[in-house]
Write a protein that binds this DNA or RNA. Structure first.
Lengths: 136, 136
DNA sequence: CGCTTGACTTAGACAGTGTCCATTGTAGGA
DNA sequence: TCCTACAATGGACACTGTCTAAGTCAAGCG
């Protein structure tokens, strides 16, 4: 049922009820939750789970590369379990809705050598902003 | 001396000592200060300026499109007075150094219609991440 | 199967960043 | 110069995230 959980188990993660619940919440149908939203949903399944545990667990998942941290608004980080298909984000400036998108071009290649200032570039993060159909 | 100040004056901004100081800080040592850093520098010039005023003033400058809000790390917002030449940012993953860069391609065009989900897209924000020469 | 141990969880205090509000001050026009 | 609307003040508050000390438990081992 939970791919995410499978992969984590395979990495020698000690499996606890708390971690299972966090993984389930992320893997469920809700995308791009904040840490506190994850915590709220986790509490529904496991009332005594603490905020710190959710933060720790999310942080570990990010370190393991199983989850991506996104900050599209300038507020709380959001967690995106879709870490295995590279993608970018499209955000509604009005309601904050977020969609995963897959740009065509070679984003890394768009930056000429003369604009790299000796940096070794490893990653490009793109956020498209606009107004979604509902808000238009 | 201060283009920024000129432009703001031209928009009918009520000119106060506080706003002048904030504009000078941004236009001076320029480059990607956080709000609290701006406040610290402003206090050097005008000791009684309050934190709230700096936050308000920066917010107004952003609304007027004279300054851009950047959040490259996932911590404090930074303020970029270089709002009139469209540009993106290159960030060192280790030391946090930030450089303005000017990518070649048509970033907006990179997103095919089929990936727009009915959004009216108005803006693209790109952050290149890597390691700077000093940290390498 | 029960022990042992070190990793995990907990609750709550704390820190950083940003916002709000009631009050006081003041820029700029009449 | 005086008025008034707009701006600044400062301190409380809210949100997000981190840390710590103490208790708990998963999982390997005998």
């Amino acid at each position: 049922m939970s791919d995410l959980l499978e992969r984590l188990r395979g990495r020698g993660w000690r499996m606890t009820a708390q971690r299972r619940v966090v993984a389930e919440v992320l893997d469920g149908d809700h995308m791009h939750l904040t840490a506190d939203e994850v915590h709220a949903r986790a509490v529904d399944k496991l009332p005594e789970i603490s905020r710190a545990t959710v933060y720790n667990t999310l942080g570990e998942m990010v370190s393991l590369g199983e989850v991506i941290e996104v900050s599209t608004d300038h507020r709380a980080k959001r967690y995106d379990p879709n870490a295995h298909r590279p993608h970018q984000h499209l955000v509604c400036a009005r309601c904050g809705a977020i969609r995963d998108v897959h740009p065509a071009g070679n984003l890394l290649g768009d930056l000429p050598d003369t604009e790299r200032f000796g940096f070794t570039i490893s990653d490009v993060e793109v956020t498209y902003r606009g107004i979604c159909p509902n808000c238009a």
